[in-house]
Write a protein that binds this DNA or RNA. Sequence first.
DNA 1: CATCCTGTTGAGGA
DNA 2: TTCCTCAACAGGAT
Length: 264
Amino acid sequence: MPELPEVEVFRREFAARGLGKMIEGVHLIAPRSLRGATGEALRAALEGDRFAGVARHGKILFARTARGPTLVIHFGMTGALRFCAAGQAAPKGALLGLTFAGGPLCAVVSQRRLGWLELTDDRLAYLRERGIGPDALSLSARDFAERIGAGRGSLKTALMDQSKIAGIGNVYSDEILFRAGLAPRSKGRDLSREGLEALHRTLRAVLEGAVGILASGAELPPDWLARHREAGAACPRCGRPLRRERIGGRSAYSCPRCQRGGAG
DNA sequence: CATCCTGTTGAGGA
DNA sequence: TTCCTCAACAGGAT
């Protein structure tokens, strides 16, 4: 379930366990998941080098080698980063397995193979070329208001638009709007300046809170909407039935009673 | 057997 | 221009 908080946890684990060690083996298990490069090029870019840094932008992970090339990882809907003991077989659904000298096996897993891998020499150029917006946690309140405040479409869709803000998906967009008390179909341009500032604060609180919780190894608490995304579930705040509706082709969960803001 | 799904992309239309 | 829906991508859960 990788949105910004999950990918940030992957980044931290990669930073702790994947940096500075010689990359001994590069096993491209799902060749079709590598875009714009051949398996040989991937091996040439990584093997024998070491990772010198790892960055996250939105839901994308960038692992930079000391020599320069950067491995770009998109996790798709069900992807994850897994570190296994050396010598262990790559987990089921692995796209790529990396073995480090004297260290663990790092596997990029995407069970439904909706994740993918790329190589780039320039992370910022990569983001620019693809039109990815600023990361949700490095966005100023002013920038947030400019990008969201004029929107004529639903707030939920706007929050999930990676060209506006990078990192938020279906689950956390619902969570942010729930915490903000805004209906998912309400529109950015119907919010006041204060409303936009409050929504931005809520966005930060939800994402930073989730990172802290997930990084500690815990799951999101039961008073989060994310724990109740299923038919017949009750609102964790007021106990009334949650609403499920289709917005932008995705299932949106909300509480009709607690989320009456935004004229939605 | 049918339906649903946390992401992304492109087509087509209002 | 902007925004919407749909289909496709693949495989597993229900």
